[in-house]
Design a protein around this nucleic acid. Structure first.
Lengths: 187, 187
DNA sequence: ACGATAACTGAAATGGACGTTCCAGTTGAT
DNA sequence: ATCAACTGGAACGTCCATTTCAGTTATCGT
């Protein structure tokens, strides 16, 4: 239904939309840059107006860029749930989550006040997947049952974010986080 | 030497300086406010120019305000080290640290890009105190020795910050944090 | 007391950063 | 060849911290 009413889009518009998205995505992985429309436009080799128009606004552009980064992470969480035991999945995924947060520091640093509906939805999916891992790990007797799984999920997510926040995120700190947290989560 | 070359300050200037500092301190405990000079001035019943001039700039004003909040926390950490066992001190202080971060959320939320030398110095003192607690707790056999104390300190601090970040910071999450972390830190 | 004067105040002006919109010129599609 | 879609430099609006400056006030010598 949506495509029928849409007027046809010109080839250069489609190309520039992709360039803008690529540039925004690339900037999300670079630490220390201020995520301005100007910076994205410069990276894309476009004018600022074109970048903004391609998605209808800065928020929508960044929402698309973050979503594109987050999607494979969510997918991997689901794959892990299907492929291995919840306990293993939890261990593997936590490490990946920290790596992701660390690699895309700007997501949690400069996007606080923006409205990112698609990103929020993906985050919900991700939380759901982690909760499933914890539920399974509890059934396997690998995770303590005296704490609400939702609370554990929040604790895990926030802590992963916090560890990734330290610049630069050292391997040593990541290991310590995983060791302490997983030991502390045992029954 | 500093007081001898200083010209005498007028009584109203001293009073307004205190009003500005009080207003800034009060705003640091209120969530959701944008920490603008205008907002501080309104709270203090002063003009924006007066607020800025009282400390020579917004950064210096907020540095003073945050330092005033942080000082008793650092002092309490030192008192705990002197009064009780390191293990007890660690447990008590961690809860207090979360409470402080939660109560003054704006400190970690909106002050990222500012230059706050006094605050940074106090933070260093605080880190040192926590490291002493961990060192002592390790000697008492209450904390694992296979992880660098500095790493543990970072982990603790970042996690406390992360727990406080969740809005609103629930007692349940705080308890879970303390339980999991302290269990995970045991040898 | 009182007036001289330097310190101080705050509304308004300034300047910079940023997202968004305008519009004259350009380009892809038919 | 035509023309609507598209582009991007420039203009605009908003939000800040900071500075200016005309008016006010505390301070001090008399």
């Amino acid at each position: 239904m949506s495509t029928s009413t849409e007027p046809p889009r010109r080839a250069d518009a489609v190309r520039n939309r992709r360039l803008a998205l690529d540039a925004a995505t690339a900037l999300l992985t670079e630490p220390g840059v201020s995520l301005t429309v100007e910076a994205i436009a410069k990276k894309a080799g476009l004018g600022a107006a074109t970048v903004v128009r391609a998605f209808g606004g800065k928020d929508a552009l960044l929402d698309a860029a973050v979503s594109r980064l987050l999607e494979p992470v969510v997918q991997h969480a689901r794959d892990l749930l299907a492929e291995t035991t919840p306990t293993q999945a939890l261990r593997i995924f936590l490490r990946e989550l920290i790596a992701f947060q660390a690699a895309h520091y700007a997501i949690n640093d400069q996007l606080g006040g923006l409205d990112l509906p698609a990103t929020t939805a993906l985050r919900t999916d991700l939380v759901r997947a982690v909760e499933e891992m914890i539920d399974g790990a509890r059934r396997d007797g690998a995770v303590r049952t005296d704490i609400d799984p939702a609370i554990i999920t929040t604790l895990i997510g926030q802590t992963a974010l916090a560890v990734a926040r330290t610049q630069p995120p050292s391997q040593e700190l990541t290991d310590a986080y995983l060791t302490v947290l997983l030991d502390g989560l045992r029954p």
